[in-house]
Design a protein around this nucleic acid. Structure first.
Lengths: 359, 359
DNA sequence: TTGTACGCGTTATCAA
DNA sequence: TTGATAACGCGTACAA
C-alpha cells in the first residue's frame, strides 16, 4: 500500500516546484489559473487531499484550536447544564475565527499516572481552564505550556492568569439577606465539597474554609456568612457534600436536618443541593416554604421552574467572555487584557422563602 | 523578547544531545536518573515546557484528537439535547484513550466562501460527522481528508463510510401504527426540512421525498407512509418546516391545521414539531388527545414529561458507538468494522393518542 | 510567474 | 547509556 502523497509528489508529477503547489492551495492569486487547475487535477488523480494540517501547524506555529479543560469527566460536562451553557458560549465566541474547540478529556485522578499528559500533548494555541480546584495538575500543565491561558470560574486567585467569572461572595448575599429579612435565625448551609483531593461529606468549619481548594463553594459560603454574622447569627451548621448528584444531595440534606431539627431555613450554594433538601422535605412531610425556607444558587431551569429563591449566573456569557479574551491574547500576546472579568448575576426572588413559624 | 526554547537549547545547555533530552521526556528508562534530573532542572531554568506538541504530531503522524463535525452552528449543538447527549457518548468513548475531542465550528453557509477549510485544516486523526445533509461540503472534505471517518445519523447511504445510527424508517412505525389502531384516518404529517440548500417551509410531496438531502426526515416520513398506505390511507398532507425552533414549529403546525381542518391526528417526525402542534392547539382551544391525537419522535425529556406518544432514540449510545468505531479504525486502519451499526429505539406509548371523535 | 534554500521542533534508527 | 543523522511535510523570503 502506497503512503499518502505529499506536496512534493504533486510538484514532480506536474513538473513544477513545491512552492507552486503550495501556492495553488494557499495563494491562488500568485498563480496562473491554468497551472492551478493542472495542479488540482494531478492532486485528484494522485489522491492528494491538500497540505497536511500537522505539517502546516508546525510550520506556521498555529494549531487552529483552543483547548478547553474541564474538571471531572468530560462526559459529566455534557450532563451539567452550566458547563453545557459555558461551552455554548465558547462556541459562540469561536464564530468568525478559524479556531476549533478541543475538549481535553480529564480522566479520574489515578495516583501515579501523570494526569497532565493530555494537556501537555494537546495541539492547541491556548487554553481555557474551566472551574478546577486550586492546585489542579491540569491547570498547572496549562500554565506551564507557554501558551495563553484564561481561567474561568475557579480558582479565583493564585494563578496569575486572566480570570473570568462572577463574584461568588457577593452574588449569594441577596439570598442570605432574603432569609434574614424573613426573620430566620436558625439557618443551615449546604454546599458541595471544598477539596478535591479527599472524599469527605459532613460538617465543615471555618478552618476548612481557609483550606478550601474549590474557591467557588468557599466564596459562596463566606458571602452567606458575611450576611448572617452581620445580622448577629453565628455558629451556623454547614454540611459539604463530596459528590454532586441527586442522591448525595439528599443524603447531605438529611444529615443537616437530622442533626439540626431546629432549623427553619437552609441556604444552599447550588440549586442541585436545594433539590436535595426538597426531596428530604417531601419525604418527611415538610412543606416549603411553610416549614422550611430554602435558597439555591445557579438559576438552572428546574430551579426557576420550581420557583426556588436563587441567584442566576450567566454561564453562556462566561464562555463567550473567556473565548473572546483568549482570542485577543492569541491575536496579540502582549495586549493588555483585564486580570479579572467579573460578570453580573441576578437575584431570583422565587417563592421558597417565608417567615418562620412561631413556635 | 526571546522565543520559546527548544529541545536543542536544553541539549546544548546541559551539554548532551537532543536525543537524550527527548528521551528524558518520552523514554525515561533509557536514561540515567541523574542525567534526567539535570535535564529537567535546565528545562525549568530556561522555561522549557516540554516537547512541542505540533512538532511531535508531525513527527509521529498523530494528532491525538478526533474531529467532530456537527451541522448547523456549533453553539446550536450545545442547545440541542440530542447532540449534547451524542457528545456525551463521544466523550465517554474517549476515556482510556489519549484522544481529545476537537469540535469543528461550522459557520453559516456563505456562498462563495469555502466552508470546508476548517475541516481541511483540522489537526485530527479522524472524523465523526454528525447528522449532515447529503452532499454537505464538510462531509466531502472529511471524506477527502484521507483520515478514517464515521458518519452518524445521516446521510444514511452514498458516503461509503461506516455508518452509525438508527433505522428511522422502521423506528417511527409504532407511532404511526398507534394512530391507525386508535381509528384515525385523517392524519397529517409534520417534519423538518428535507433539503439544506434552499429555505422552504410548506407542503411537500413524494417527489420532494425522492430529492431529500436530509435522510433522517425523509426516512421517518416514509416509514409513517408505509404504515398509512398499508392501512389504505393515501394522500396525507405533509408540511416540512425549514427551521427547527419553537416559532417555526408553531407556524408549520398552523399551516397544516389551517389547510386541513378535517385532521384528527398529526404525526410529527420530531418531538419539537409536536410541541408546535401543542402550542397551536392550546391557542385554538383544542385539547390533546381529545380533539387531536399527536405523536413525536426523539424522546426528549420534555416530551416524556408531557406524556407525548413518541419514539426514544439512544443518542448517547450513538456517540459512544461512533467513538469506539473510529478508535478501532485508528488502531488498525485495515480492521473490518461493520458498514452499518444500527442501534435500537424504544416506543413510548404516552397519552397523546385517543380515538377520533365521532363527528 | 516560478524556483531555491532554509527552517519549523521533534522522534526513530542505528551506531558507538 | 548516549549520540549522530535522517526524516516528518510544509511555508516563505528571496532570487530568478
Amino acid at each position: 500500500m502506497r503512503s499518502r502523497p505529499t506536496l512534493e509528489d504533486i510538484a514532480t508529477a506536474v513538473g513544477v516546484s513545491r512552492t507552486s503547489v503550495s501556492n495553488a492551495y494557499n495563494h491562488p492569486e500568485q498563480l496562473s489559473p491554468g497551472l492551478r487547475r493542472k495542479i488540482f487535477t494531478a492532486a485528484a488523480e494522485l489522491g492528494y487531499s491538500g497540505p497536511d494540517p500537522k505539517a502546516r501547524s508546525l510550520r506556521t506555529q498555529k494549531a487552529g484550536a483552543i483547548g478547553v479543560v474541564l474538571t471531572e469527566h468530560l462526559s459529566y460536562a455534557f450532563e451539567d447544564a452550566a458547563s453545557v451553557d459555558f461551552l455554548a458560549g465558547m462556541a459562540e465566541a469561536s464564530y468568525g475565527t478559524e479556531l476549533a474547540l478541543t475538549l481535553i478529556p480529564v480522566g479520574p485522578e489515578t495516583p501515579g499516572v501523570d494526569q497532565s499528559a493530555r494537556v501537555q500533548r494537546a495541539v492547541v494555541d491556548g487554553f481555557v481552564v474551566y472551574s478546577v480546584a486550586e492546585g489542579d495538575p491540569h491547570l498547572a500543565a496549562a500554565l506551564n505550556s507557554g501558551t495563553p491561558l484564561v481561567v474561568c470560574g475557579q480558582p479565583g486567585t493564585t494563578t496569575g492568569a486572566p480570570f473570568v467569572g462572577i463574584d461568588d461572595r457577593t452574588a449569594i448575599k441577596p439570598a442570605a439577606e432574603a432569609l434574614i429579612a424573613a426573620g430566620h435565625t436558625d439557618i443551615g448551609i449546604l454546599s458541595i465539597r471544598l477539596r478535591s483531593d479527599t472524599p469527605f461529606t459532613g460538617f465543615v468549619n471555618s478552618a476548612d474554609l481557609d483550606r478550601a481548594q474549590l474557591h467557588i463553594q468557599r466564596d459562596r459560603i463566606r458571602g452567606a456568612l458575611d450576611v448572617f454574622h452581620q445580622a448577629g447569627i453565628h455558629n451556623l451548621p454547614i454540611v459539604a457534600s463530596h459528590i454532586n448528584d441527586a442522591k448525595s444531595a439528599h443524603n447531605a440534606a438529611a444529615m443537616l436536618l437530622d442533626n439540626h431539627p431546629e432549623l427553619t431555613a437552609v441556604l444552599c450554594t447550588t440549586d442541585s443541593m436545594a433539590f436535595g433538601v426538597i426531596s428530604v422535605a417531601k419525604e418527611r412531610g415538610l412543606s416549603i416554604p411553610e416549614d422550611l425556607s430554602l435558597t439555591g444558587f445557579d438559576g438552572i431551569a428546574r430551579a426557576l421552574n420550581y420557583g426556588l429563591t436563587t441567584v442566576i449566573q450567566p454561564n453562556k456569557r462566561k464562555g463567550a467572555a473567556a473565548g473572546k479574551l483568549l482570542q485577543q491574547l492569541l491575536d496579540n500576546p502582549l495586549s493588555k487584557i483585564p486580570a479579572r472579568t467579573i460578570l453580573p448575576t441576578y437575584f431570583a426572588p422565587g417563592t421558597s422563602i417565608t417567615s418562620p413559624r412561631i413556635s
